[in-house]
């Protein structure tokens, strides 16, 4: 009875026209889109900031790596496995004290970046490891025969030859982080996921939830298409010639993505410093 009345209440307040709908929810949805983009891009950035070196270290210290080191590999391996074995939602709750110490609060988009990044680091490290171990051992041997040091092999061979695979995996990582960020909505994480949970699950306003889900799908598609295009076009194993039209779209999207990431990172750093 109680629930039904709530539902009626919500239905009564529902806007009659599209124009009204937009004026009622538009601002919130735009903020939601930004929240999601902000969390995804900044967490992916921080994830790579630490995950890339960790992945390189995993690759190098492997048994068949450039400089095998069983203890270092084992430690990183165990850390990666532990973090990855904790379901994200639980990690999110588990990290609340840490997040609060770092950001000052445990809800909202900036706070969610902390557990998102921590979940992303080992995931990204594994992705990087798999990309780099795929690099043809023959090319590494050729570099060694020319007198290259391990550091030169990492920067000039592994990261160069693994490029395509690294970009594909970054796209996958970004998609996963986007999904996680939506999950954070259940504990007031902000962004589109948060809106979907509040309106769809708590208030039964399904139209808002559907639009939110559609926006999430569109965002995911954009990231995915962009990443794959990027990976394929810059793969020199394939002879590609890009049409001017798609090149323009690609550049425009790159600029948007780049500035979004830039603004996001600045916002994140500011929020951390100004608390």
């Amino acid at each position: 009875m109680h629930i039904e009345s709530l539902y009626l209440l919500a239905a009564a307040a529902a806007p009659a026209t599209v124009g009204e709908w937009i004026s009622q929810y538009g601002k919130m949805l735009v903020e939601g889109i930004w929240g999601t983009v902000y969390m995804t891009l900044v967490s992916t950035f921080i994830g790579y900031l630490f995950g890339l070196p960790m992945g390189v270290l995993l690759t190098v210290t492997r048994k068949d790596g450039l400089k095998p080191n069983a203890p270092v590999y084992k430690i990183l391996d165990v850390i990666a496995n532990i973090v990855r074995s904790i379901p994200f939602l639980i990690l999110l709750i588990l990290l609340i004290p840490f997040t609060r110490a770092l950001v000052g609060k445990s809800y909202g988009t900036t706070a969610v970046i902390v557990p998102l990044s921590i979940a992303a680091i080992p995931f990204i490290a594994r992705m990087v490891e798999s990309s780099l171990t795929e690099v043809d051992a023959g090319v590494i041997e050729a570099a060694r025969s020319m007198g290259a040091s391990n550091m030169q092999i990492i920067t000039r061979v592994l990261l160069v030859e693994g490029k395509t695979s690294l970009i594909v995996n970054a796209t996958i990582a970004m998609g996963t982080i986007l999904g996680y960020s939506a999950m954070a909505g259940t504990v007031g994480g902000g962004g589109l996921g948060d809106i979907a949970v509040r309106y769809g699950y708590n208030r039964y306003i399904y139209d808002v939830m559907f639009v939110t889900v559609a926006l999430l799908i569109i965002l995911f598609q954009l990231f995915q298409t962009y990443g794959m295009f990027f990976a394929n076009h810059f793969d020199r194993r394939k002879s590609t010639s890009m049409k001017t039209g798609s090149l323009v779209v690609f550049i425009v999207f790159s600029v948007i993505m780049g500035s979004a990431a830039g603004i996001g990172i600045i916002q994140f750093v500011k929020t951390m410093l100004l608390r």
Partner: peptide, 17 residues
């Protein structure tokens, strides 16, 4: 090793360069 060049069966070139 800079004094000793080497070539291989599968060429081992950098495919991305």
């Amino acid at each position: 090793r800079e004094n000793i060049g080497m070539i291989f069966q599968h060429f081992n070139l950098l495919m991305q360069k």
